[in-house]
Design a protein around this nucleic acid. Structure first.
Lengths: 233, 233
DNA sequence: TACATTTGCGTAAAAATTACACAAATACAT
DNA sequence: ATGTATTTGTGTAATTTTTACGCAAATGTA
């Protein structure tokens, strides 16, 4: 029974960002140890006196100087006994999103991670531990979640043109959607507000109106039993 | 960093069973320690050389002599630092279902748990640790999952009358449904087979035909992109 | 000022969901 | 054996939701 003392508890974060019509994942390069030089998910061991959530946010701060604006528990990886070759470690993985405001990475000193960097989801190198698998699970999660929770707005700026939302969906779901039906459906939900700002696109084309996700309205609807759902043919 | 050694890893299981139109949860009575006599979820510490899944199945066997027929990870509870007053413990909770074949509890000797017992979901006593909260999460999970995955069949016998499936849904979702529309929808999915067995009900009434869930057919549909979904007015 | 590019918008057809009531088969009581 | 209570089994019309689809407006650039 006391053997459980020898199991270490880690947290890891899969942080998604969205820029230039691309979905990115945040990775850090290991600075010390036998894994030195390999890319891994930001994360580390949980301290005895901190909660799991505190541990992830601390690690994200330390290793990448980043603040996420959506965070939820993803899955706990502990079935592969040798996922860490050094010790028996179970890792509680967290799923996080950052919007363009927080996309920038701040250089940190004095940490395990030499550098942090964004990688396009389809250009992830071979990672340390079982982190490639963890990313697969997270990738599936973001795809599913996009259809039944309004998390897309956590990847966009506060105000965004409709086409951004649309391409975010097509890119993450890897699926074409009908522009007109998409717009109709989204607007019918009732929590997307039209602003009166117009922005010109780079290149040519008619300027686009900016929209805003109203979280309060969304929460009100939620409490009335509303259920978000976006599906396409 | 080495402080993580002092975090213990436990697993707990929320096992649901369905009998006599009632949803039950499996609990065990603590036999030793300062919690002696209080009811808790079946579970215990993870051994160094076993996977998380192995730990749960072992504990279920040891404490209740039960074999489940659906098992998935639910959530890892580790934000309340004092959820266990003795040590810092994080618990990986598992969500399980048993069908009527495996509902019977087998007496075990030599374990931490004095006895195991089924409790109706709305008659759960005050439990040890944070287990009442864990059950709440699991309860929500079963409600959600029932609508987007065919887990109801893991709570029913291999062959079942349609009315059983129907009342399972009404009871777990706490919501009335239209018998005709429900039957129509379910049968239209294409993976529920009609048997040619008729069974008389206890009491009076027209005998009911038995149906069977065809998992193979369901899996084939899944791989073709089919998406299970049951909604009601 | 013509051309390319992007935004913005409506309607008709098809599909899915909802609402709704009565007959058939049995057990039980008389 | 007959009537009554109980449970299973079934169809259709109205409504709502989803799908398919094309052209005009506003800009930048050559």
């Amino acid at each position: 029974m006391s053997e459980t003392n020898e199991i270490k508890v880690a947290v890891d974060a899969i942080v998604f960002g969205y820029q230039q019509n691309t979905l990115f994942v945040l990775l850090v390069k290991q600075k010390f140890g036998q894994m030195k030089g390999t890319w891994v998910l930001p994360g580390g061991f949980v301290l005895k006196h901190e909660s799991l959530i505190e541990a992830v946010t601390r690690e994200l701060q330390e290793e990448a100087g980043i603040q996420v604006n959506y965070l939820e528990q993803l899955y706990t990886f502990g079935d592969n006994i040798h996922r860490d070759p050094r010790f028996r470690v179970i890792s509680v993985a967290y799923f996080a999103l950052v919007n363009p405001n927080n996309f920038a990475l701040v250089e940190q000193n004095d940490t395990d991670a030499e550098e942090a960097q964004w990688f396009a989801i389809d250009r992830i190198p071979r990672l340390g531990y079982d982190h490639n698998e963890i990313i697969k699970v997270a990738h599936q999660r973001i795809k599913n979640k996009l259809t039944y929770q309004p998390i897309g707005f956590d990847l966009l700026a506060d105000e965004f043109p409709f086409s951004d939302l649309e391409s975010l969906y097509t890119i993450i779901l890897e699926q074409d959607i009908d522009r007109r039906n998409f717009r109709k459906k989204i607007l019918s939900l009732g929590f997307i507000e039209e602003t009166d700002t117009l922005v010109a696109n780079t290149g040519s084309g008619r300027p686009a109106r900016l929209f805003r996700f109203n979280k309060d309205t969304y929460n009100q609807l939620l409490s009335k039993g509303f259920h978000f759902e976006i599906k396409f043919a």
